[in-house]
Design a protein around this nucleic acid. Sequence first.
DNA 1: AATAAAGTAGCACGCACATGCTATAAACTT
DNA 2: AAGTTTATAGCATGTGCGTGCTACTTTATT
Lengths: 208, 208
Amino acid sequence: MPKIVDPEERRRAVVDAVFRVVRRDGVEAASLRNIATEAELAIGSVRHYFTSHEELMVFAMKEMVERVSARVLAHAEALRRPAPVRDRAERAEALLREFLPADSERFDEAVVWLEFTSAARTRPSLQPQAKRLYEGMRMIVGKVLAEANRGGRLHEGLDLDAETERLCALLDGLTVTAVLQPWSFTPQAALDVLHAHLSSLSVDGLED
Amino acid sequence: MPKIVDPEERRRAVVDAVFRVVRRDGVEAASLRNIATEAELAIGSVRHYFTSHEELMVFAMKEMVERVSARVLAHAEALRRPAPVRDRAERAEALLREFLPADSERFDEAVVWLEFTSAARTRPSLQPQAKRLYEGMRMIVGKVLAEANRGGRLHEGLDLDAETERLCALLDGLTVTAVLQPWSFTPQAALDVLHAHLSSLSVDGLED
DNA sequence: AATAAAGTAGCACGCACATGCTATAAACTT
DNA sequence: AAGTTTATAGCATGTGCGTGCTACTTTATT
């Protein structure tokens, strides 16, 4: 048998290199050569773990979706546990903040998200992941609003489906703007807009 | 002198070919070869009008920005003329609709917009246009809200700057979602969300 | 010590790309 | 008719790409 190497760990190291290249130069620059260089491996070594370029891209996007989902679901679990009414709104907002590029790690992830998601438009092999992520976001945002509504924290007569679409579009728009116009729209501005939006839905406004 | 050809028209024909390629296969597929084929020209002919690939891309993006701006500014002019209060809200919404992919022509344009704007993140030569378009949108959206506010059509106590950012992000988010998730989010849904959002800002709601 | 397995490295091929440069065709001016 | 200018076309070069394939190293088993 060969050198003692954990293949899982190697694959993750390669995928991290993919993320760095995509973050820096875009998905079109994510060639095997550039990725191998970034990972400080020979191109042949990368190909030992991923038989084709397409397979690597799909795997990387899956990993990205996985990481986002894991973070969001952790918040979702916390939200499901009973809590004083006062904290529930804050927890809901904390969950929604996960969709925004609030810190540099999340910002990098948002860039990678946008790159992969828009690449999926013309790359059929990436579309399942793009759909999965978007549907998941809609579902979780819908649940957050439904929970808030059950708790009587939202204005009466709101159309929850419509509000879900509005909030999802707002989150995507804030992320896209922060990623593509960083010189005039900061992550903090995105957080502020989210807070204002939630206040506008809430019966009491939100304590800040 | 040569064959009787209007160079302006030729350049526009080439740019239209760029748009079709970008719409169909993304900006990364917009090579001189693909563009020449799409325009039914020889690659050398295209190069007669554009000395480099980069110059062509910049020109094409400028043209896209130009077209969007022209459409929006036409509405802005109409909005500046006096009109009954009743019509002013409708006119404002009609202007804002120009930012959404409401019909197939605008949808195609939105795809091209997203492709170029996100390509600009890693292509310095495209960034000036990306900034210009985004700043222009912010300005015009800000003016629309300010005008509505002066007319007393908005709720009191609104932070207009914050509302401008929220509306801009919403418009971008709706467009991005319609472009990237067309199977689950239709242009009509985007129009509905916009209408609902404006209603939520308006003191009377909006008629119908 | 011999062998098998897994990791690492990289050559070679065919293709697509942007671009420098040259050659031909066409049409207006003189 | 001759010459000038512009349009069209395409060849040649160097670079980067994914991938098929082969060789070499390293380690664990026998």
